[in-house]
């Protein structure tokens, strides 16, 4: 497990690196709590990019850290979860209280935003090209 903390926006990112079950959840939860208590971040992000497996132990592990971050006035977000982990978070109601983003799947509104930006950019470039001619 790795951490990164940005002073500028008080953002704590937790990069999980091990399969999450009761054994590993117990190992990491104290370490993550220490980091949250040390920085009192504006936002905590759990990055699941390297996690291919999680059982229900992950639910308690995430909710426990979420409660701590909230209590200290911070936001919480889960990113890069795969399909089966997303399903476990959905079944347990975690996705109803914590913003959860799937792997390689940006939120639809954001995607639309990027597409609009691209269209606008192409349009501008075309205009510039025409200007040169």
């Amino acid at each position: 497990m790795d951490f990164s903390y940005s002073n500028e926006d008080r953002l704590l990112t937790v990069y999980l690196t091990e399969e999450i079950d009761q054994h590993t959840a117990e190992k990491v939860r104290r370490k993550i709590d220490d980091e949250i208590e040390r920085f009192i971040p504006r936002k905590v992000i759990f990055d699941f990019d390297n996690i291919s497996f999680m059982d229900s132990s992950g639910i308690g592990m995430v909710l426990g850290r979420y409660k701590l971050a909230k209590m200290l006035g911070g936001d919480f977000e889960i990113i890069n979860v795969n399909k089966s982990i997303k399903r476990i978070f959905e079944m347990s109601g975690v996705t109803r209280i914590i913003m959860t983003r799937e792997k390689n799947n940006i939120k639809i509104e954001e995607k639309q935003g990027i597409i609009n930006e691209k269209i606008q950019k192409n349009f501008n470039e075309e205009e510039e090209d025409e200007g040169i001619i």
Binding site: S56, G60, M61, I88, S92
Partner: peptide
């Protein structure tokens, strides 16, 4: 122990 009570539900589904 931060158990969520979802174990059997997950096994079932």
């Amino acid at each position: 122990l931060e158990r969520s009570g979802m174990g059997f539900t997950i096994m079932q589904s």
